[in-house]
Amino acid sequence: MIKKNLLTVVFLVGLVFTGCDLSEDEPIYIQVSAITEVTNPNQYAKDSITEIPVKFKLPSQCHVFRKFYYEAHDFNRLVAIESLKSGDNICAQDEELKTAVLRFKPTSLGTYHFKFWLGEDAQGLDQFIEFDAVVDH
């Protein structure tokens, strides 16, 4: 927790020294971004947190990871990446593969079906990495 808070402070101080102007006139863009890879853990337990590593690329070097886009309906889960960009700057594409951890805490026994959004194919159809998480204890 302390390490995470320290990284947040370092990031915010870095923004101040790099001259980013986060004035009210600056537009903020939130974008849903595709996932490139997911590691499916072997075990899931009711009322216990399981960490699911998720790899992704951001749309540009001006984007930062905001949070997971997460929809839950019964035992179905839809997951994507939400990124944030401040301003109308034109930025280079971000080629760096990043990792975030989805913390999943099932509250019921059963099989949860995950769909991680990969983006759209050439015909504009959504593509997913799918797997089931069996919570049996």
Results as ranks from 00 to 15, higher is better:
Asn5Phe: 12
Leu6His: 07
Leu6Thr: 11
Leu7Lys: 15
Thr8Asn: 13
Val10Ser: 04
Phe11Ser: 13
Leu12Lys: 08
Gly14Thr: 12
Gly14Ala: 13
Leu15Val: 10
Val16Glu: 07
Thr18Lys: 04
Thr18Asn: 13
Gly19Ile: 05
Gly19Pro: 01
Ser23Tyr: 02
Glu26Ile: 13
Glu26Lys: 13
Pro27Tyr: 01
Ile28Phe: 01
Ile28Pro: 00
Tyr29Ile: 11
Tyr29Glu: 15
Tyr29Trp: 06
Tyr29Met: 05
Tyr29Asp: 12
Tyr29Ser: 13
Ile30Arg: 11
Ile30Lys: 06
Gln31Arg: 11
Val32Leu: 08
Ser33Asp: 15
Ala34Leu: 00
Glu37Gln: 12
Thr39Ala: 10
Asn40Thr: 12
Asn40Leu: 05
Pro41Glu: 07
Pro41Phe: 07
Gln43Ala: 10
Gln43Tyr: 11
Ala45Met: 07
Ala45Cys: 03
Ala45Asn: 12
Lys46Gly: 04
Lys46Trp: 02
Ile49Gly: 00
Thr50Leu: 08
Phe56Ala: 01
Phe56Asp: 07
Ser60Leu: 11
Cys62Trp: 06
His63Thr: 07
Phe65Ala: 06
Arg66Asn: 14
Arg66Lys: 11
Lys67Met: 06
Phe68Tyr: 14
Glu71Asp: 09
Ala72Met: 06
His73Ala: 09
Asn76Thr: 11
Arg77Ser: 03
Arg77Phe: 01
Leu78Gln: 08
Leu78Asn: 05
Val79Gln: 02
Ile81Lys: 02
Glu82Tyr: 09
Glu82Lys: 10
Glu82Pro: 00
Ser83Pro: 01
Leu84Met: 13
Lys85Gln: 15
Ser86Val: 07
Asp88Ala: 05
Asp88Phe: 06
Asn89Asp: 15
Ile90Gly: 01
Ala92Ser: 10
Ala92Gly: 02
Asp94Leu: 02
Glu95Leu: 12
Lys98Asn: 09
Lys98Leu: 08
Ala100Phe: 03
Val101Gln: 04
Val101His: 09
Arg103Leu: 10
Phe104Glu: 13
Pro106Val: 05
Ser108Glu: 15
Ser108Ala: 10
Leu109Ser: 09
Gly110Pro: 00
Thr111Glu: 14
Thr111Arg: 03
Phe114Val: 04
Phe116Cys: 14
Trp117Gln: 06
Gly119Thr: 10
Asp121Glu: 05
Asp121Leu: 07
Ala122Glu: 15
Ala122Arg: 14
Gln123Ala: 15
Leu125Glu: 14
Asp126His: 10
Gln127Lys: 15
Gln127Ala: 06
Gln127Tyr: 10
Ala133His: 14
Asp136Glu: 14
Asp136Ile: 08
His137Asn: 15
His137Phe: 04
His137Val: 08
